[in-house]
Design a protein around this nucleic acid. Structure first.
Lengths: 210, 210, 210, 210
DNA sequence: GATGAATGAGTATTCATTCAT
DNA sequence: TATGAATGAATACTCATTCAT
């Protein structure tokens, strides 16, 4: 391992350290209320150091999304690759994968929508933006392919698979957001998992060719 | 009409004037970037005046949500009251109503989630918070009753109607948010309506007793 | 006096109040070391208020220059208008005027050069920049006309009057800067006035047709 | 050559390397906007290394002045030593020398005035400050001696030679600064050389005993 | 000597909110 | 009621300088 490589690795470790701290702080306070100093303190670093690794607050925030997307993509692709699963079983596996993604970082969906203001996007480096867009595109493509497969095998109804992937993702994120917000406002208990299960069940039922 | 009442009416008119201006400004800039001065200018009032009608920025923002919830409730209740509709037809009417709500104020859903940070909630008056919670509860109750009706009549499967209402709402808001964000990031065209239609179609299919 | 006018006057008074404070602070600390908070304190205002009257630090600084240019222009024009003075006498009056300008604000010359970085100019409003440029141009035009007059009357040698005006101004500002800096570095006494007198005497001598 | 001496020489080379880089960066960005990292990069060194050779940013900046003063002194002394030149010819040679100095480093004059804030001076080492003061004094002394010579020989009028040297220097630096700033603001062409020539011509004329 | 990662003090600017008129 | 000038706390970001390696 060359010196170059060791440095790169060290740098990556630091980035992760900051990202972990940022995740905690953003989760608790939200993007606007969280200050760079909060994050620096959480990471036991100085504010200036944050800027050695992330161009600005927006970019640090977006990096959280990138991280979760990477995990999402891996999980989703894994489902897609299980050759001996029937389309319906794949759909169920997909639902499980989504839930794992949620547990990996409950903020994922919230992140991904707060991100989408054109004002925020302006402050991201092209590079990071491209990575996010690309990964998001690839993950959806995999989901789409699962639907395509099911349609081809005559198990699913012949909807446009692109649209199906969008709806699947929307249903997932919609339920996450809604249950999340109910929890906060009503101090309800956490009903995410069972609600999500029923949601996917109905979705599957509606999709299946009877 | 007493003087008291006239004053009250006048006051209400002003509040609406401010809300309309706020809606425009928040839509364009988002909660954080919009300033109270922007809104005051849009309303052709002075910043100070805004505070005669709304306790603070958060409360003004939340009032937008209240307004849309009021509209949502009216529309939804109207659907529920159409006695001679079959459950399935009611569900379709409900979907149409939701779309009208979206068109009445496309920000609704976005609003309703941005609202839910506990940090923000702290700044709302108990009164306003209660109104929002109550109205939201009532609207969902009506939706729930539609599902109950369908289940009782043996048209829908016997899921928990409370959960069904949540899922219905989640599906709607999930698709709205997702299509919205796709439009911003990818500068895609607006596919909301058709996507929403398919989503509800699948949902109906999955719900229906075959 | 209308209410509009009174407000305008009040606003102008405030601007002057700030400018006076800024002059003191900039004089003592220089542009970079002076902070907006220093100036606010000196003006017994809050930092925010400064920004109600000046777009930014650079613009506040440039306003100092504008103020002195206004005074310079008035003095110089007054000299030019004294019809019964001979060109040589006018030149002497001009020298006196310049000295008054210096006493009105010793920072003038220093200001006027620190101003000229293209970086700084970028932050000025077009309006202010135009005013400064215009006033500076007009003042030099008046000086030029004095030389033209002398040349026409055969009193001065036939140099290009534009160049003469530039040299006259350069000589003045050069001496001011140099004596100023000697005072600071060597803690010399103030020899500005006598040095300036000799400088102009030599300049006049060299210009005069013998 | 001892090891000690070799090291000293090596050290001097490094200092020059840094000064050359600093000159480039300061010229382009000015003192405030130029960062130590900019300079380090330009010198192909690390920021830390700069501090092995210069106490701080101010001292590095002041070293530029020292360097130009050294050149100025050499040139000026050379003129003074040309025994067979008449005082007037010497004055012309002096003017040429000044122009060479300007071309050696156009920033010289600007440098030398920006330097003079007592705030800046505080950060210089006594040693460097002494060197600058001494060299500046010596250069002016040489200039003064040229005037003394001319006065004694009855060619120049009997002004105080100390003052004459100051005025000569002021005229030079005044014209440089003024033409420089005209160039930046008005994007005028470069009229320095011809303006300077006329300025010195007039100065000479005014000084000469007729 | 040389490095360059880390520091953390320093500051221009914004903007929700207040209050004298 | 309405105003809008004034406030001043809050914060992202910079950069001269240090110091462990």
């Amino acid at each position: 391992m060359g010196i170059q490589e060791r440095k790169e690795r060290e740098r990556e470790r630091r980035k992760q350290q900051i990202i972990v701290a940022a995740k905690r702080v953003f989760s608790e306070k939200g993007f606007t209320k969280a200050t760079m100093e909060d994050i620096a303190k959480e990471a036991e670093l100085s504010p200036g150091t944050l800027y050695l690794y992330f161009k600005n607050k927006e970019e640090l925030y977006a990096s959280l999304t990138l991280r979760i997307l990477q995990y999402l993509y891996i999980r989703v692709e894994h489902v897609s690759n299980e050759k001996d699963l029937e389309p319906e079983q794949k759909l169920n596996s997909l639902a499980d994968a989504m839930f794992d993604v949620y547990e990996f970082d409950p903020l994922i969906v919230i992140n991904m929508f707060q991100l989408q203001s054109s004002e925020t996007l302006k402050h991201l480096s092209d590079e990071l933006l491209a990575e996010i867009t690309e990964l998001s595109r690839k993950a959806l493509a995999v989901i789409r392919s699962i639907f395509e497969d099911g349609i081809q095998k005559g198990v699913f109804q012949a909807y446009n698979p692109v649209v199906l992937a969008d709806i699947f993702w929307s249903l997932f994120s919609g339920v996450v957001l809604w249950e999340e917000s109910k929890r906060i406002v009503n101090k309800d208990k956490d009903f995410l998992k069972p609600t999500l299960e029923i949601a996917f069940e109905i979705f599957n039922g509606g999709l299946r060719k009877s």
